[in-house]
Amino acid sequence: MSGGFDFTGKVAVVTGAASGIGRATVRAFAARGAKVVAADRDAGVHETIAGLDEALAVEIDAADESDVRRLIKNTCEQFGGIDIFYANAGISGGTAGIFDADVALWTEVLRVNLIGPALAIKHVAPRIVERGGGAILCTASVAGLRSGAGGTPYSASKAGVINLVQSAAQQLATSGVRVNAICPGLIETGMTQRAFDYAREQGKEEKLGQLNPLRRAGRPEEIAQVALFLASDAASYVNGQAIAVDGGLSSSHPVTRQVYGKPAF
């Protein structure tokens, strides 16, 4: 077991675990003694658990209710229960604004980014209660805190995640289950890889993350560390919160605005 938090005997499930934040978090939990379940609709999820002891990979659509039930059932059958669930799966939906996004885009982004975490909370909370309590985490975004950090459907879905964890924390009062959200800034993940690759091809990698006070993009491992904290007993009095991990971006949120009838400037 690596230093820091100790999750020996705990069972942790992470969705969106084929790459990026999800993969880093699975490995961080495993390094600290947890039995881990990595879930994703991408077959790369099997690579996430390569070399790990007491680990399971499950291919699912994290926004499909039958798949979510199957994930929870398989986990409980394999490891006897669930203590920690991190609903991390999400999609960007591109940079479309209100006047560009069609209903199909809105529907898919909300389905994956908001309905997915809602289904996870609905079905996993009773299993965590059975274990005497634990933690549910959801990936929101600084884009959910205020405008200017993502496309409109994406931003609205992540704002919904923040309210979802607040509502869930209230509805799970006295259950022993804490529910919190992590709001990443610009992190190099599968979802943002094209932007990172393009910047490197153009020799402009140093511009990534330049709008935050740290003047750099974040790493998946930095989000994983916050997930470990929120899932641990060290965060026993943290509940219903949205924690920004963004290099300070949300302290100001400088934006490029899309003005009605005019191109962005």
Rank of each mutant, 00 (worst) to 15 (best):
V124H: 08
L119M: 08
F99D: 15
D100H: 05
K122G: 11
A125S: 15
E108Q: 14
V109T: 09
A118L: 14
E130F: 01
L110K: 00
V103E: 10
L119F: 09
I128D: 06
V129W: 01
G97M: 10
A101C: 07
V112T: 14
R111M: 05
I121Y: 04
V112E: 06
A104Q: 09
A118D: 02
L110F: 14
A96M: 05
L114C: 02
L110C: 09
E130V: 00
D102C: 07
A101M: 04
D102E: 05
A125L: 08
A118V: 06
R111V: 05
V103T: 09
T95R: 11
R131Y: 02
R131W: 01
K122S: 10
D102I: 06
I121P: 02
A125Y: 09
P126N: 10
A104H: 03
K122V: 05
V112C: 10
I128H: 04
H123E: 08
A101G: 01
G133E: 07
A118Y: 14
A101K: 04
T95G: 06
A101R: 00
F99N: 11
I121D: 10
D100R: 05
W106D: 01
D102W: 03
T95H: 04
T95A: 12
V124C: 04
L105S: 02
L119S: 03
V124P: 00
N113R: 13
A96L: 11
I115W: 07
F99K: 12
A104S: 06
G97F: 06
I98C: 10
W106N: 03
I121C: 09
L119Q: 13
P117C: 11
L119A: 07
I98R: 01
I128K: 00
E130D: 15
N113A: 12
L114P: 05
R111E: 07
G132Y: 03
I98Y: 08
P117L: 12
L110M: 14
G97V: 08
H123T: 04
V129D: 03
E108A: 04
D102N: 14
G133F: 04
A104W: 00
T95S: 13
V129M: 13
V124Q: 01
L114G: 06
H123L: 12
A120E: 06
I98K: 01
T95K: 07
A120G: 15
V129E: 14
E108S: 13
A96G: 00
V124W: 01
V109I: 14
L114M: 10
K122T: 12
P117A: 11
A101Q: 02
L105V: 03
R127H: 13
A118Q: 14
E130P: 07
P117F: 08
W106Q: 07
P126E: 10
R131D: 02
R131P: 05
D102T: 04
D102S: 01
H123C: 02
A96P: 00
I128E: 06
A96F: 04
E108D: 14
G133Q: 01
I98H: 01
E130N: 11
A125D: 07
I128M: 01
I121K: 09
L119W: 11
F99M: 09
G133N: 00
I115E: 12
G116Q: 11
L105P: 00
